[in-house]
Design a protein around this nucleic acid. Sequence first.
DNA 1: ATCGATAAGATCGAC
DNA 2: TCTTATCGAT
Length: 821
Amino acid sequence: MQSIEEQFIDLRRRYLELRFGALNEVQRRAVFKTEGPLLILAGAGSGKTTVLVNRIANLILFGHAYHAKQVGAGLAAEDVHELEKCLREQTAPSPQLAARLPVEPVRPWNIMAITFTNKAAGELKSRLASLLGQQVGGDVNASTFHSACVRILRRDAEKMGFPKSFTIYDTDDQQRVLKELYKNMNIDDKFLPVRAAASAIGRLKDRMIPPSEAAETALDARSQLVAQVYAAYAKRCRESGAMDFDDLIYYTVRLLREQNEVRSYYQNRFQYILVDEYQDTSVAQFQLVSLLCGPGQNVCVVGDDDQSIYRFRGATIENILSFELHFPGAEVIRLEQNYRSTGNILDAANCVIRNNEGRKGKTLWTDAGRGEKVRYYYADSELDEAAHIAQVIEENLEQGARLSDHVVLYRMNAQSSPVENYFTRAGIPHKIVGGLRFNDRKEIRDLHAYMSIVSSPQDDLRLRRVINEPARKIGNTTVDKIAEIAAGLEVPMLEVIKGAENYPALSRAAKALKGFYALYLRLVEAEEELPLEEFAAQVPEITGYTDMLLALGEEGATRLENIGQFVSNVKTYVDMNGEEASLEGYLEEIALISDIDSYDESADRVTLMTLHSAKGLEFPYVFIVGLEESIFPSEMSRFAPEDVEEERRLCYVGLTRAKKQLYLSSAATRLLYGQTRRNQPSRFLEEIDEELMEKESSPSLQAARMHRFSPFGSEGGGQRQNGYLDRNYNAAPAKRGNSRSAGMEARFASSLSSAKGPVKKVEGGSFLPGDRVKHKVFGEGVVEKVTPVGGDHLIEIEFEKVGRKKTMANYAPLEKMGVDG
DNA sequence: ATCGATAAGATCGAC
DNA sequence: TCTTATCGAT
């Protein structure tokens, strides 16, 4: 016979299992393991965030009640009966009973959840808020590595020899500093390109190697030079009171390592640490995590070694592979059930990833059914590839899918243009993620630089950036002279500018410099007197930036719009932060925020992005384009097997984004960087089992084969290994048979004569104003205007539902309708 | 100081 | 192909 304590413990477990009943058994095991180190190997689509959020909720609501052997004092038989009743009738426990369930619950502010992106941190916060309420959820620390470090450093940066108000250099600032150092040190950037130096220095900091050690361990001339540049760069940053992104981590680790009181403060503060995307952490980030988690070692990391795709920027997959070595006694839980994709998609992904050597090993499964086969299209050219995608999307739309259900993924941003152009001409609404980011645009950076010098007048780097932008007759020679004088006097450059007339070397430019200083004073005054958003609106006015762009006319129009956007961004910031809003706060925020965070999923558009940016997202229909050797896997990975493995993981990430249908494609010829290349289909295609795929090749390639000249064989003597092609494509086209593809093939066939021309040959002139037409995306409408444009026709159509749109006749999915429509 | 021409270089890219 | 950096001429 069990004691009431034992009965209660049993029932408490059952209650908790019911409470977290939406999770599967393995997920629940991860939630209830509250103490000690835990590695959750979470496969793609296995409900990783759900586990993270529920684990935090369990810590706060119930502590370690699940595994605990203790019950509170004064347990009565009634409590046992009531709990039994709750379980039987599935009702909520009374407040008294509920108070009895937790065992040492954790206070929310003792939990620290660390992510890589603001978006992930935001998602975590909002899901915690909806599970625990705004108040409790908000008390949990959920932030990115970098913002967590900024917060720590804002308290104690002085202990590391930096002002508390240190500025944050982004990648661009960093390169400017390096370029300047190159000049001073007489370094030829042919031998060591600035980008390479920046990256090498970053990798050293990722491994917590200080300049002195870098110099000692440098074996070849190049690493010695890197070490020299690194030392000079670190010195310069310290003098300017600035840290770059890598420094934020580096100095936080050193602070925690070297200052015992600081370390114990945070170890006491953060008793439970959770880290997301652990496969992307660097050595420095690993050290940060281990320093933060004190003797309790309550650290839970979530990651997937198969999705590690950031080796090139310092992530070390060893962190996840050796977790159990770093944290002895760690438990490992594998989440292998996938809730996202169909069986065929998952199997294809498994096929690819199993070719990698260094992995923990994990096989995703689903009970969602086989689904459609993966479809592969072997295109004639990159245009044919784009046309095929447009075609498939139109078909899917007819089946009731939405534009936003589709995503096109590519290896590099440069590949987006053919798809983008085709979509634009066909009138398929789309959105490109990534590429040039809003805050990276020149005009925005310039305005930010002006705001920076108001906030910190010693920021010489940003001063240099804008001192002659717009042109104020202050040239490079003058700026260099100022820098020289400033360095000699050990004052900021602005101080020298203030008293320009006192220095003979500056006599010629003194007037211009006085003018600039007056402008600076006007900015300072505006900042003091106006609310932040009005100050921001004044910056382009006071500095003459607006006038400069107006003078440019047409050319400056988009940049003016960007400035308008900038002002509203500042306003948004003020609205979001209310009383807390400050110039410094705004500058810090933009330094730490990227615009992929503002990726708007609600708009009904097809998304175009790189495979890298797709990590963490999912779409019903996924197109992966350019599956060609030297594109994907990329040319750079050719000789290093580890690099090919990383490409393969990237492929795995891409494949596992698809929920319903996966479309792969490659092109026989591709125009890239102005050159037409012929690439073999990617090895990753070969790795997918035949029976999981349905293959189709461009009609032109079929025709070529029929006439016994293979697409590659007849080409200028180059002996190609086309074994893969022969093996895979012979039987392919026939399979597609008589279905809807007949019309499509006819249309594609017509494109063959002009390899680069539009794919659908419709007589542009056959549309006339007044014609009723039907567009696959926009519905029905009436042609308003037809203008011949370089061999095609621009048609303006007034649609019934979406209003007036412009499309190109040969690209748009347009049909002429009967006379009465 | 600034314009225009010419040459070089070009992955993926959180914070 | 297209952008960005640097150089040389005005």
